[in-house]
Amino acid sequence: MTAALLTLADSRLPAGGHTHSGGVEQAIAAGVVHDPATLSAFLRRRLHTSGAVAAGLAAAACGADPTTLVRLDQEADARTPSPALRAASRQQGRGLVRVGRRAWPSPAWDDLPERPHHALALGVAAHAGGLLPRDAAAAAAYLSVSGPATAAQRLLAMDPLAVAALTARLAAEIDAVAAVDGVPAAADPLLDLLAEVHAARKDRFFAS
């Protein structure tokens, strides 16, 4: 069970995560993130908003019936006001479905839309891999910080040891977010605005 969870949360799982910065590319452009301290603040802010929502959705999607999956996909839309973030989530969901079908074959994949929200794909992947809802939530919460952390490292040429330490120190908070019951409706207007500005740029390295 643990190995399946490690595989699901591994940044090297070829699901397209490396092309998304979780908003950090635009946060850097806007001056919001510029060093380890400001990156840490950004990651925590993201963890407790979109990370918490993703964790709740992933847990709810793990083992859910087809009707529930459709409802959860709508709930994800309702919690994601930014069209750019919806598109980014569905693009990552599509990537995870592609590799998930091969890695963890299961009829549950057919219950998802072709481009589901990423958190739903995580939930289905976890279930197909023999994992529990809490594992799906843990993967979602962890990925909500690990992606932007490495993106910031690349964009700012930060010390990778500093970034690794910073991510590791968030472990307890990540676990706490993953343990929350239900699907929260935590929003962050800053992340929404950054995503919309970013999507309109032509000179970007990351898809989101």
Binding site: R12, P14, A15, G16, T19, Q91, G95, R98, A207
Partner: peptide
């Protein structure tokens, strides 16, 4: 090479 997802998309 390593994660071809975006290109497959």
């Amino acid at each position: 090479r390593d994660d071809i997802t975006a290109n497959l998309d």
